[in-house]
Design a protein around this nucleic acid. Structure first.
Lengths: 158, 158
DNA sequence: CTTTTGGTTCTGTTGTATATGAACTAAATA
DNA sequence: TATTTAGTTCATATACAACAGAACCAAAAG
């Protein structure tokens, strides 16, 4: 039972990270688990360390951890002769996830095109604007991979 | 009382648009109001037309419309000698909003930098990955305006 | 076999978002 | 002045998200 300590400043930062990820749509407890794993001096934390440091219940911790595992935001390692799992953030995935989330924004082209095909031809100006907007989204959708590639040239899809 | 009619296919499309905007974080009724305004043959709809066509209560319609007005997704026009407001989608704004939302993704650089500055230097590999991720986000943040400019050259910010 | 450990699952509480329907209001009309 | 219209606001219902706490469970240790 090596008592890992987190400072007041770290706690405060965890809360701020928590608020940020709440705004991105994650539940509060989940967001704080991410925060903890990001600021902790120790990279790999056990289940017990997580719920005691964050002062949340075991069930909250369990659900939060499983959500984060399922969404590939964290992973865990094990150690020989130790039944516990050691959870850590899965940083390599973050760049990928950010790319995917950005791509999602342009994912409704098909829906917009359906609207376009169902629209009355009478509303010419509106239809023209719709067309332009679709054009913009298609441009983004095509251009973003190029942008990513520019950052990391060996990356050739998404 | 010119009874504007929307077809079965239009209704179905409105629901699909509704689901999409729900996923983007809008409340169901709000999402359907957008859908209706996007597919309707008539571009400008009154309050009454909106809540009767969508079969939602007046209060739900009122709240939805006000939310959409406040977030600049719709606007209204008036007609001389007519007390009603005619609501319509504000298409020009959509491209701008999409850009802003995409930029928001890279808005947590400062938070990540704080994490970076508070981290123990002991975890070298982790810190290196963090640094790289920050680099990526900064790249995106810088590069996106260029991408937008490429689409619309007279556009020189955001 | 009993106890401990590392979690998971169940039950119940609380808070909040979304909606309805009715009451209300202010302007226009009759 | 009375009534209709175009909405807003209020009271209330419903539903669900998020969590706590306790019971539970399976593997390992004693």
């Amino acid at each position: 039972m090596t008592a890992l300590i987190i400072t007041k400043e770290q706690k405060e930062l965890i809360e701020r990270i928590g608020v940020f990820y709440e705004q991105q749509g994650l539940p509060p407890a989940v967001a704080r688990v991410i925060g903890l794993l990001m600021v902790s001096d120790q990279l790999e934390l056990t289940f017990e360390e997580i719920y005691t440091l964050l002062k949340i219940s075991k069930s909250a911790a369990s659900n939060a951890i499983n959500l984060l595992l399922n969404t590939h935001r964290i992973e865990y390692i094990t150690k020989p002769g130790d039944r516990r799992r050691y959870f850590k953030v899965r940083f390599e995935q973050w760049e990928k996830m950010l790319k995917e989330r950005m791509q999602f924004f342009s994912s409704h082209v098909s829906l917009l095109k359906e609207i376009q095909s169902q629209r009355t031809p009478k509303t010419r100006e509106f239809n023209a604007k719709l067309k332009e907007f679709i054009g913009f989204i298609e441009f983004i959708h095509k251009e973003m991979p190029l942008m990513f590639k520019k950052w990391n040239p060996k990356n050739n899809k998404i």
